[in-house]
Design a protein around this nucleic acid. Structure first.
Lengths: 139, 139
DNA sequence: CTAAAAATATTTGATATTCAAACTAAATAA
DNA sequence: TTATTTAGTTTGAATATCAAATATTTTTAG
């Protein structure tokens, strides 16, 4: 077992764990999985266009159209077309949407706390640094 | 911005990045996303029952039944009931399934290499240690 | 030892998710 | 101005998912 295989194994377990956790959270809420993912992205952007949102979610714009349709129907988000380029729709959260985001985001903050509770301060710092590097360089 | 919020942000970005990457890999293959996830689990177990597989995938057993049905139809996996407990089905990969797993797993190994290419040896060791801790304690 | 309860897996019915490809409308380039 | 590109939506089809109901088998309680 090389370190690369070992790390691959842990990354998969981490991803599956994270994914399972997210599924179980969503099941108890008024959100679907794709809605929750969209909220997570929208909560960190004031306004974002469909293409950008689709890219951040890793799905096609067609899929994103459906997701945003649903968020609009629930009054969580709204579209707004721009004057500069009338093809573009900027998506943002409504007040209700922001509240739903905060609520979901609190679960994430809590999960992070749970993770870091088994780590030393140095480990936490290093973990954050490493994730930042990987996110910037790989994804 | 506390370190907890910062880390939460990076974890989400990491998860989305990983997810997007997986989607794009799967799109170019003969596999669907859920099939690929199931293969990843099955590839690391000789035999696993439906409940265990469902748990590892973070979905219900009903969903897992459908996934395994499809894998069986494609000749990637097969069920085998046990004598000790006749309710239980043990799932394992066929030779074709093992090949599909290896192929998909190679992509993962390659992604891991890409991630570690921006890290020092010490960072890699520490990252692995931290992931192991989190996986063992949190998920 | 039987009847009740629990456990494993499947099926059913409904909704959600996703993609590729076709399409619309607007902006840009030739 | 016309052709091409770009942003987003729609369509049609396949997959993915859950909760609840069911079937079968095993375990537990009386």
């Amino acid at each position: 077992m090389t370190i690369n295989e070992d790390l691959t194994h842990e990354l998969l377990a981490f991803f599956n764990g994270f994914s399972s956790w997210e599924n179980s959270i969503v099941r108890t809420s008024e959100l679907t999985v794709s809605e929750a993912h969209a909220l997570e992205v929208l909560g960190e952007h004031n306004k974002i266009n469909m293409k950008g949102l689709a890219h951040r979610l890793g799905v096609t714009t067609g899929t994103t159209t459906v997701t945003v349709d649903r968020l609009e129907k629930k009054n969580f988000a709204h579209r707004e077309s721009t004057k500069e380029d009338r093809r573009v729709n900027l998506i943002s959260l409504t007040d209700i949407g922001k509240k739903a985001f905060e609520e979901h985001h609190d679960y994430h903050l809590h999960l992070t706390e749970q993770m870091t509770s088994v780590l030393s301060d140095d480990e936490i710092d290093q973990f954050l640094k490493t994730l930042k590097k990987i996110n910037a360089e790989t994804f």
